[in-house]
């Protein structure tokens, strides 16, 4: 990969929480405009990786950059959109207030118009005055997705973005995310989600990269007609 075209770079990163090693010499690069899935068993370090990329955590060793700058910089924050797993927007605010509040914090132009268009796109209009604490989990997830893209980010970091969504909304979100010309990294456990949203995979195990490549290449690792989930499961079990 051309270094100049690298958007997300994780270089020899290690991270430890007390005695637990979360990441061990982790390295990967994602070029501009590419969409990658982050796969791995529970405890592989997927969420820690995303938190390092968002700038919530600092690596103990190594370096993380987004667009060539450190993730905690204002420049990186302004181009990043982040959706954590089980995202929970402000419970004390209504749906509209959440969108306007975050839009204002991000200093986007036309907060009201952007809010209205997102309310319509995610079918949230009927809930706009409802407090988040009263919403169903699926509706909350729609709002969280809307909040992650409200500022039209160039880099999207998503943790299980399709969780809790009904099938029509899943299809809508898949169409949206694949149509956006952004660099994205999607953490997921579900192979079908990975293959719908991305073309490339970074597989983690025990805090390090187990395998990296395209989904087509991943399929070729298995026997003919072998489901891709079976191939991934075999690789993950082998790494443990």
């Amino acid at each position: 990969m051309d270094k100049q075209r690298t958007c997300i770079e994780v270089n020899a990163v290690s991270k430890r929480f007390g005695n637990t090693v979360a990441l061990k010499n982790l390295s990967f690069k994602i070029p501009y405009g590419e969409k990658f899935a982050l796969l791995g068993p529970n405890g592989a370090g997927k969420s820690t990786t995303l938190k390092l990329l968002v700038g919530f955590l600092n690596p103990d060793l190594g370096e993380v950059t987004i667009g060539g700058v450190t993730p905690s910089s204002v420049a990186a924050r302004s181009i990043m959109g982040y959706l954590p797993e089980d995202a929970s927007p402000y419970h004390v605010l209504s749906v509209r207030e959440n969108l306007e509040y975050v839009g204002t914090l991000r200093q986007i132009e036309n907060v009201k118009e952007t809010t209205d268009s997102l309310l319509d796109f995610f079918d949230l209009r009927e809930y706009e005055k409802a407090k988040v604490g009263k919403l169903s989990r699926g509706t909350t997830q729609k709002l969280a997705l809307a909040l992650a893209i409200i500022h039209k980010p160039k880099v999207l970091l998503l943790d299980e973005p399709l969780n809790y969504l009904d099938i029509p909304t899943q299809e809508k979100v898949i169409t949206l995310l694949t149509s956006l010309s952004v660099t994205s990294l999607v953490s997921t456990h579900i192979m079908s989600v990975a293959s719908r949203l991305t073309k490339n995979v970074i597989m983690l195990a025990k805090g390090a990269v187990l395998w990296e490549g395209s989904i087509d290449a991943l399929k070729k690792l298995g026997a003919a007609e072998e489901p891709i989930e079976s191939i991934v499961a075999r690789m993950m079990i082998g790494a443990q």
Binding site: Y90, H91, V92, L93, S94, R96, E97, E100, Y101, G103, T104, L105, Q107, V111, K112, T115, E128, K129, A130, K131, G133, K134
Partner: peptide
């Protein structure tokens, strides 16, 4: 708390104000 305030009579407007005022309001 949630039951007593699930729907707002009037939404707070964050649109068109500065970041500090938005945070202060909340």
């Amino acid at each position: 708390i949630r039951a007593s305030s699930s729907d707002m009579e009037k939404n707070r407007v964050f649109n068109g104000i500065s970041r500090f005022r938005a945070i202060f309001s909340l």
